[in-house]
Design a protein around this nucleic acid. Structure first.
Lengths: 338, 338
DNA sequence: CTGAAAGCGCTTACAG
DNA sequence: CTGAAAGCGCTTACAG
């Protein structure tokens, strides 16, 4: 550890008491301008920098930090979310510390522990797996203000997208275009958001009396390679689907790649739809028909709810659960059948 | 601020002294198993969580944090970098706190101040603007171990990509394909990395005795929209370039969009090249010919250098400057002229 | 096996 | 206008 100058050092050099220097340096003056200026100058010369830890022991006059849990950051959805959340938190004067937990429950619980011991003010949890660290999070509620963005943690404020309705709408749209062999790519049973999206898919099929085919619902890890292989598996099915709805655009982009590599065309051979509305998917050709969710709104609501809790403006004991409305964007990745 | 249980509370309930409880709870025992167990149980019941700030005042037995400065996180290059850096730091037992500074010098210097006051162990700086907060960074060297990734800060360890050579190589390649009207998209004079890339471009042109056209070097802010408009400007030039080398793939993707929207084809009407090798650019169709730089290596070297400084394994007073080798990836975005 | 005391760096009533 | 004293929550020699 590097050497730091303390109040004592400054006081010594200035020939004053520690408490006087403390008051001067934190602007709680009543001192002669001359001595004040002198002290400030000496502090600067010596390179004094207040010890935020010591300060923080007594009163949290120091820095206010918020932890942010994201499953990964390679999916641009989360990168955009981090961007929006950080921007807003820093505007409120908070520091963001990031935990990219990446399916590692130990990492999550270590980080949570650190937030508590370090007396952070709160945390935001995005898209965790179901019951990952559930017990730890429940305990942490006593110490930390918490809100979640599309994550299933009981008893905290929460903001969500209309996942089920959104998926239902776009699958309905596919059905309206004459598709009946519709696959569902990227499912993971342990992520609650995806359960809702899957439900939307089921509901749409049911309404149209289309039987559910197990082979059409493909589970997959959420990295590029796994998604690519899952898409490939779908394409090679004896009963190849005419449309694939992807649980998000990160998955959709892998599907594009797999379809292209198989020598097939979108949408002539296979139609594709997605979910999220992240900026990179504008790169996809043909343009992707998708469900857009407003990432900036998710971030804004989450941060506002959290700040209201921290400031005690919101003291209600029942939890908010806010749904943010999706919007369908029709583009060129879906063919009309027949 | 939430209520926390202290050692005193535990001691009281256990009928022991604070110091005894402290020793027991931090495992520095010599106590009867019975009393130890009792204390641990009481601590748990009460929900005791040690105050890391108080601990940290004396000795940094607590949490070790590293600050990471990135200009933005919407460019997947930086998202991937954050991912790699975070993964490695957490493996070394460090917490990452993130500053997305986004051209905001005030935000940078506030964050730097916070790192120092909070007694962080070091920081990593990626891709800053030239002389943004130069003075502050120089001062901070006294307190913080620092390394940079492609950023120009005097007197610290540094890792870079062979930017100039890489750009020269790919522009040479374009020239070899018969191109002479080659534009350079996405330049910003205040980012030193881009100066090196621009130099590579100039050198290649010079070697082929191609005169430099000012209109072909387009400055642009680095967000999607600005880049799109800059690309558009290039396309509409009376003397339209036959090839555009983009300073990175984030820019290239905007160029793709602009070209497509103008009703032109890649590479038949305009050839495109990029720089970085980020995963999303695999989505581009036709596949982008580009210079790949190994992001994981950049992160690894930066973290290793930083950790060596923190652990005092590296005490050398002269700074390392490591170059990581680029690699050209030939794909389908460049046409052979004539 | 357990505790009293001093100290980390700072702040904040309370005096003078 | 300035300082002595107590305290924040914890740790660590030093005693016993």
């Amino acid at each position: 550890m590097k050497e730091y100058v303390t109040l004592k050092d400054v006081a010594q050099k200035a020939g004053l008491s520690i408490s006087s220097v403390s008051k001067i340096l934190s602007g709680k003056d009543n001192f002669k301008a001359a001595t004040r200026d002198r002290v400030i100058k000496i502090a600067e010369e010596l390179g004094y920098s207040p010890n935020a830890l010591a300060r923080g022991v007594k009163n949290r006059s120091g820095y206010r930090t918020i932890g942010f849990f994201v499953p990964n950051i390679l999916n641009p959805f989360f990168a955009e979310l981090v961007n929006e959340v950080e921007k807003r938190l820093s505007r409120h004067g908070f520091i963001l510390t990031l935990c990219i937990f990446d399916d590692d429950a130990k990492k999550m619980s270590d980080f949570l522990k650190m937030l508590i011991e370090t007396r952070a003010e709160g945390c935001i949890i995005a898209g965790t797996r179901e019951d990952a660290c559930e017990a730890e999070f429940q305990q942490a509620k006593r110490f930390l203000n918490m809100v979640s963005i599309q994550a299933d943690i009981a008893g905290i404020d929460r903001v969500d997208v209309t996942d089920e309705k959104g998926t239902e709408e776009i699958v309905n749209y596919l059905i309206g275009k004459g598709h009946r062999n519709i696959a569902f790519l990227g499912y993971r049973f342990d992520i609650s958001v995806l359960k809702h999206r899957l439900n939307g898919y089921y509901r749409a099929l049911k309404r149209a009396s289309i039987p559910i085919r197990e082979a059409y619902v493909v589970e997959s890890e959420h990295d590029n390679q796994a998604l690519y292989l899952s898409a490939k598996k779908l394409i090679e099915l004896p009963n190849r689907p005419t449309a694939i709805h992807c649980i998000n655009e990160f998955s959709a982009s892998s599907a594009y790649l797999a379809i292209r590599d198989a020598g097939l065309r979108i949408p002539e051979d296979i139609s594709i739809t997605g979910f999220d509305g992240i900026s990179i998917s504008k790169m996809l050709l043909p343009r992707l028909t998708t469900i857009q969710d407003p990432i900036d709104l998710l971030a804004q609501i989450a941060v506002d709810m959290l700040v209201a809790r921290i400031d005690n403006q919101d003291q209600s004991s029942d939890n908010k659960h806010i749904y943010v409305q999706h919007r369908m964007i029709e583009n060129d990745s879906v063919a009309q059948l027949e």
